[in-house]
Write a protein that binds this DNA or RNA. Structure first.
Length: 563
RNA sequence: GCGCCUGUAGCUCAGCUGGAUAGAGCGCUGCCCUCCGAAGGCAGAGGCCGGGGGUUCGAAUCCCUUCGGGCGCGCCA
């Protein structure tokens, strides 16, 4: 073996690629002076026989030097082989095909990568704290009814992003805003009062404007069992504050309960009403006025949103003096922007038109690049291949709680992040609750359970030794190297998910890891007679189990030992 | 009318900053358990990437246009 490449870290895939990039730039400089400044990027080739990585550096050059890409690629590779033979030994395959330079890492590099994963243990894929503070708001709902499917989606996406941010070293603060101000709260109170009266008089009508869902009945019953008929004959002005608060608190408590059950946690449940009471709304409005970003018209105060790419100016104080929802949101975002390096809002599909306004707010407050707004598209429920329609106004709602009852937390969390947030989601309830191989959740969990089973069958001494395996060079099978390569992707995948708000890639990656493992499992007998090979394969299982456990945890799904 | 999202295999969807013969799961047709968990593996059929233009060495991806689906355009929250 070549002495220059036996020194530990230069074996690692990243180091090998960096060395190749340097060597390639030297070759470019020698053959086509001046061209070495262009970046050398690596991508995953389309087909496995092309190797582990490919670079398209020759394409950009081809245009410059008016030569066919394939000829450029061939020339570069010949030059590189001539002058950088050491670097070439880090690769078991180096080819110029169709203009691409295709690379396959030497097995030693993958062994070094695996050794690194084993020493990282369950921390593999994490990153050190980077000091950056992120505020993540998601789920937020009106406290007028139970959480429904779309909140299942926004909370699943938000919680998974939050957990990945944290795993990658960010300081994360998650928040939920309770929209407990405004006329809707009186509607809630009147609806609740009607439900209360119905306990004594079943003919008592719901008000014209109401939340007709039956979810208010148990709350009304609690009032009745506490206070009896106390409120029946009182005037509205007497009971309204009580029923508002009782209804609001009862529903928020239920929403918190569902979140807890769903594995979703918020560091702050921010009440809109409190925001007003604290004076922050007034202060922020004053600040905007100081900056000359407001004007009065017909007794109302407008925010000059059009100066910040919104399509019209927006009222923040109504002509009767009451602040609008936007005024509250400006104050809330000002607060978040000041205490965070980045602010992310994950909103439902009915908030499209609100993005420009929020971005305008951030810019007006002096933080033009700190806010990201992510929209999760709508969710439709499928039952027996039929769309289940829902309407909150008609009272025909299916609470998130019921869906969790039916399919379980694991399947629900996985299904909700499985699609790109921008794609409308058809949630197939029957598929999600099916405990079969049709269900992608079980496929991944099965991979984890299968590994656990292997460890139950293995000799304890072997397992101990696997954690610091010295025999990794025995891993030479294509399925083994492919699996290591897949595991190795984890850190960069997580950063990619964060950079592009693409949590669905976590679900797809989980499936890919499981798939590569199952293939390895069926092609390579783990508990073989040869001890060194056996220990090396157990080491690979150890790393795979760790990655599956990490990915499932980040997705909010359990990683079972048996199923 | 304006704005945002969306249209890829029979179905549900991937396709990251434009890159090689467009991928996966389900479904369909075969095959593989004397062997660590078959909730698994292997192979096959199935696509003018909604239509039409353009940009360039190269487009599912970028631009324009057109058609279909969803959602927004309040002194509601």
């Amino acid at each position: 073996m070549n002495p220059t490449i036996t020194e530990g870290s230069s074996f690692l895939p990243r180091a090998a690629l960096d060395r190749f990039a340097d060597a390639l730039r030297r070759a470019m400089s020698a053959l086509y002076p001046g061209s070495e400044t262009s970046a050398v990027d690596f991508e995953a080739p389309r087909r496995p026989e092309f190797g582990d990585f490919a670079t398209n550096a020759a394409f950009a050059l081809a245009k410059r030097v008016r030569t066919a890409p394939q000829a450029v690629a061939t020339a570069l590779l010949a030059e590189l082989r001539k002058n950088d033979a050491q670097t070439c030994r880090l690769f078991s395959q180096l080819e110029a095909t169709a203009g691409f330079l295709n690379l396959r890492l030497a097995p030693e590099c993958w062994h070094a990568a695996l050794a690194g994963m084993l020493s990282d243990g369950t921390q593999f894929g994490s990153a050190r704290e980077n000091g950056s503070r992120i505020s993540l708001e998601f789920g937020s709902a009106n406290p007028t009814g139970p959480l429904v499917v779309v909140q299942g989606r926004t909370t699943s996406i938000g919680q998974t992003l939050a957990d990945i941010f944290r795993f990658r070293g960010y300081g994360v603060f998650t928040e939920w805003i309770i929209n407990d101000a405004g006329a809707q709260m009186e509607t809630l109170a009147r609806s609740l009062f009607a439900r209360y009266r119905q306990i004594f008089d079943s003919d008592f009508p719901l008000p014209a404007e109401s939340y007709p869902g039956e979810y208010l009945i148990p709350i009304a019953q609690r009032i009745e069992s506490k206070d009896g008929r106390k409120w029946v004959s009182l005037a509205e002005s007497e009971w309204l504050p009580y029923f508002t608060k009782y209804g609001r608190d009862g529903i928020v408590a239920e929403q918190k309960q569902v979140c807890r059950r769903f594995g979703v946690h918020f560091d702050l449940w921010q009440s809109e009403k409190e925001l007003h009471a604290s004076g922050k709304v007034k202060e922020t409005v004053a600040l905007l006025t100081e900056k000359g970003l407001t004007y009065e018209q017909e007794n109302a105060l407008y925010f000059k949103a059009t100066q910040f790419a919104d399509d019209k100016d927006r009222v923040i104080i109504r002509s009767d003096g009451r602040p609008t929802y936007l005024a509250q949101d400006i104050a809330y975002h000002y607060d978040k922007l000041q205490r965070s390096d980045r602010v992310i809002d994950i909103l439902g599909p009915d908030h499209h038109g609100y993005i420009d306004r929020l971005q305008g707010i951030a810019a007006a407050l002096g933080f033009p690049d700190r806010l990201d707004v992510l929209i999760a598209q709508q969710v439709t429920l499928l039952h027996a291949d039929e769309v289940v329609s829902m309407s909150k106004r008609a009272g025909a709602i299916i609470p998130l709680d019921e869906i969790i009852d039916e399919v379980g937390v694991d399947a629900a969390r996985f299904f909700f992040i499985m699609l790109a947030p921008g794609s409308p989601l058809k949630f197939d309830v029957d598929l999600a609750k099916e405990q079969s191989n049709d269900n992608p959740v079980y496929y991944v969990q099965y991979g984890h359970a299968r590994i656990a089973s292997v460890f139950r069958n293995a000799l304890p001494d072997d397992v101990r030794e696997a954690a610091t395996a010295k025999t990794l060079q025995n891993l030479t099978h294509a399925a083994e190297l492919a699996l290591i390569g897949r595991l190795w992707e984890l850190p960069s995948l997580l950063d990619n998910i964060l950079a592009q708000f693409a949590p669905h890639r976590l679900a797809h990656y989980a499936r890919d890891v499981a798939s590569d493992f199952h293939q390895f499992y069926s092609e390579c007998k783990i508990l073989t007679e040869e001890r060194d090979l056996r220990v090396a394969r157990l080491a690979l299982c150890l790393a795979t189990r760790s990655v599956l456990a990490t990915v499932l945890r980040l997705a909010g799904v359990s990683a079972p030992e048996t199923m």
